[in-house]
Design a protein around this nucleic acid. Structure first.
Lengths: 219, 219
DNA sequence: GTTTCGTTTAACAATTTTGTTAAACATAAA
DNA sequence: TTTATGTTTAACAAAATTGTTAAACGAAAC
C-alpha cells in the first residue's frame, strides 16, 4: 500500500519535532530544520500537517494533553494525600528531565496565540479541583497550614517547573554539568516536598517508585 | 544638530521593543513590528543597533542587569533577613507585573544562544551567595529548617516567577480578568513568604512599603 | 542664505522561509 | 506485468524578513 509502512513518517516527524522543541529548546526551528531532524524531505511536513502552524498546534495540544493526563492520573488516585503529592513531584520532575523545554514551548506558543489557550483548557479538569477535598481535610485536621487549593497547586508546579524552564541559566550560573544538573533536580524532589509540607519526605526516597505498570489492585 | 533631539529615537526603540517583548510577550516580533511599535522607519533599527541580533543582545543584557541590580540592592542591604526576603518578593512580583514576559525572554534567548549566558553571568554575584551568611545564621539559631542557599533562592524565585511566566495559561484556566490576575499576584506575596518561612508575613502587609527614594538613614 | 552633519526615509537587494505541484517512486492488487 | 494508490522528492513560486544605500530632511553653525 505505502512506502515503508512501518516507518510511520508522520510519527517520526512529530517525534523529532518534539525532540527539537522540547529537548533541545530550539523554539524557532524552521520547517527545514524539523525535516532535517526527522531525516525527511521538507514537503512531507506539509503533506502530513498542511502547514507549520498546524504542526505546532498538534504538538502543543498533544503536549498539554499528555501533561494533563499525567497530573490527573496521580492526583485523582486513591493514595493518601502526601503520597499523591510526592508521586506528583516525582513524575513532573522526571518528565521535566525528559522534556526540559516543554513548559517553555507551551508558554511561548500560548503567548503567541492566546486564543489557543481556550481550546486547550476548556475541558480541562483543574488540578486544584482534584486535590481540593484532600487539602481541605488536611487543613481541617490541623496537619497543614491554611492555603487555597489554587495557591497550593501553583506553589507546587512553580517549584517543579521553574528550574526546568531556567535550565540553561541555572546550569551556567552554578557551573553545573548535565549530570550535575540531573542530580540537582533529583535533590529538588525532596526540597520541594519539604517546602510544601514543611517536613521531610516520609520514609524512603521514592526515586524508582512511580509505577509504569497498571496497579495490581482492582477488586 | 539632529532631528527632534529630545525624542531620543534610540531610547524609544528600546523602550517599545521592551514593551513588545516583555509586556506583550511577542517573542518572535520582527524588526518591522518593532519599528511599527516605536513609530519609526525600520531602517532606523539598523542605524542604531546594526542588526536585529544586536538589538536583542542589548535588550537581553540590559534586562538581566536590571534584574540583577534589583536583587543585589535588596539582598545585600542591612535589613533583617526576613525583611529582606519579604522586600525581595515584593519587588520581584511588582517587577513581574510590569514585565510579565521578561523571564520568558531571558530563557528563550539563552536557549537560542547558550554561549550568551556565559557573558551575562560571568560577573554575576549569585543571589545565593548574598544571603548565605544570613541563612546559615537563621538555621543555626533554629529559626529555619536546614536548606542550602542555592535551593532556598531557587525556591524563592520559582514561586515568584513561574506564575508570571504562566500568566496566559493561568489567566485562562481560572478565568481571571487582568485585574483579577493582578489581585492574584498581590495575594501571592504573602503566600510565597508563608511557603518559604512556614509562617505568616509579619505585622502589616507591605504593599506600598518598598522605597522609591533613598533611605533617610545615613550616619 | 548656505553649509554641515547627524537623522530619517524610501527603494532596493539578498536571503530565508513557507507553501505548492507535478513527477518519480514503491508497494500491493489485478 | 501492469495498474492503482499512497508516499516521497525536486523544483518552483510567493511571501516575509533582514540588511544596505543613496537621497531627502532638518536643525545648527557659518
Amino acid at each position: 500500500m505505502s512506502t515503508i509502512p512501518e516507518a510511520q513518517t508522520e510519527a517520526v516527524i512529530k517525534e523529532k519535532a518534539k525532540s527539537l522543541f522540547f529537548q533541545k529548546g530550539f523554539l524557532n526551528a524552521t520547517t527545514q530544520e524539523i525535516a532535517d531532524e526527522a531525516g525527511v524531505n521538507r514537503a512531507l511536513i506539509h503533506y502530513y500537517f498542511r502547514s507549520r502552524d498546524q504542526l505546532m498546534d498538534t504538538l502543543l495540544e498533544e503536549a498539554v494533553n499528555e501533561k494533563r493526563e499525567k497530573a490527573r492520573a496521580v492526583l485523582s488516585s486513591a493514595l493518601p494525600f502526601r503520597e499523591k503529592i510526592s508521586l506528583y513531584i516525582d513524575i513532573v520532575v522526571e518528565y521535566g528531565l525528559k522534556y526540559p523545554f516543554l513548559e517553555n514551548f507551551i508558554i511561548t506558543e500560548t503567548a503567541r496565540n492566546p486564543e489557543k489557550v481556550k481550546v486547550l483548557c476548556q475541558t480541562k479538569i483543574k488540578s486544584s479541583d482534584l486535590i481540593r477535598k484532600d487539602l481541605e481535610e488536611e487543613i481541617a485536621k490541623g496537619r497543614l497550614l491554611p492555603i487555597t487549593a489554587e495557591h497550593f497547586v501553583i506553589n507546587l508546579i512553580s517549584l517543579c517547573n521553574y528550574p526546568l524552564l531556567a535550565k540553561t541559566v541555572l546550569q551556567n550560573m552554578h557551573g553545573m554539568s548535565d549530570t550535575a544538573y540531573r542530580k540537582f533536580l533529583q535533590d529538588r524532589k525532596e526540597i520541594i516536598y519539604h517546602a510544601i509540607f514543611h517536613e521531610p519526605l516520609p520514609r524512603i526516597t521514592r526515586k524508582e517508585e512511580h509505577p509504569h505498570h497498571p496497579k495490581p489492585a482492582k477488586q
